[in-house]
């Protein structure tokens, strides 16, 4: 089905020769003589690979529109096995993500998380919106850390890995306002009693847990009212990284870059991992 404005519906890939999508470019890699293979996250069809012919030639009309972390409107033609980009137009170039090292690294992290958690299997408009919103928040918000912490929590929600933050994941008791533990294997917080007996459970402070709960329940505009201290941010980051690595069963590439870039930026001591 294709609506009047030419917007593709999920099954359009199999029917139409040419279809239009809105997408964020996640990654690109060189392909053949002068082509690029793109990994896109589209509004209409979720993750999708597409081939941009001639995109590595300097005079390509498409190349500038197809850089990673660009939101684009694309006309795709059904190829033999993967779609081919026939037209491209930038909707949002997220310029600051290209110019500032720290923001660029955060954007890579955002994109890597999404890329690693998703498969090429159908649309998820909420994930698309979250991705586009997060990239634009990185460009406009004063605290990229807050945008990224909020993204992690929401992404876990949308992927079906929402951590349990209100009851003990082991005994079910309601979580009291005190320092707790977090178990990646059980997917949530543990009360101090259960936490001490559970192997691999990490301690989590009350303030960090409070922010995580707040982000899980609130819209971004509400979440953005808080100010994250560097210490709390670091604790939340370490906790999320621990949980995400557990779920992915493999380390992520970008956190090492983040640590390196921040170290030079703010002369922070390296964070133990």
């Amino acid at each position: 089905m294709v609506t009047q404005d030419g917007t593709a519906q999920p099954d359009a890939l199999h029917r139409q020769r040419s279809f239009r999508v809105e997408a964020v470019v996640l990654r690109h890699s060189d392909w053949g003589e002068a082509d690029r293979l793109l990994v896109l996250y589209t509004l209409e069809m979720g993750k999708l690979r597409a081939l941009a012919k001639g995109a590595r030639k300097p005079r390509s009309r498409k190349a500038g529109h197809l850089e990673p972390y660009t939101r684009v409107s694309l006309q795709l033609a059904r190829g033999r096995d993967i779609p081919i980009v026939s037209q491209a137009e930038t909707l949002d170039p997220y310029l600051r993500l290209r110019e500032e090292l720290l923001l660029s690294t955060y954007a890579s992290y955002v994109v890597e998380l999404l890329d690693r958690f998703t498969y090429e299997e159908g649309e998820n408009r909420s994930i698309y919106r979250l991705l586009a919103d997060t990239l634009s928040r990185l460009c406009t918000q004063s605290s990229p850390e807050l945008a990224v912490r909020y993204y992690e929590i929401r992404l876990l929600d949308l992927l079906g890995f929402r951590p349990q933050l209100f009851q003990c994941s082991s005994c079910g008791a309601e979580i009291q306002p005190q320092d707790q533990f977090f178990s990646a294997a059980l997917g949530g917080v543990l009360c101090p009693q259960c936490g001490r007996d559970t192997a691999g459970a990490l301690p989590v402070s009350m303030p960090a847990l409070k922010y995580l709960r707040h982000f899980q329940r609130s819209s971004f505009s509400e979440a953005a009212r808080v100010t994250l201290s560097a210490g709390i941010n670091r604790e939340m980051e370490a906790l999320m990284q621990h949980y995400l690595t557990y779920l992915l069963e493999r380390g992520l590439n970008t956190p090492a870059f983040l640590r390196r870039v921040r170290r030079i930026d703010q002369d922070e001591p390296p964070i133990a991992n």
Binding site: S104, T105, S108, E112, N253, T254, A256, F257
Partner: peptide, 10 residues
């Protein structure tokens, strides 16, 4: 070139 996503570091 550096690529955070592909893990190509300095």
């Amino acid at each position: 070139a550096l690529s955070p996503i592909e893990g190509i570091g300095p």
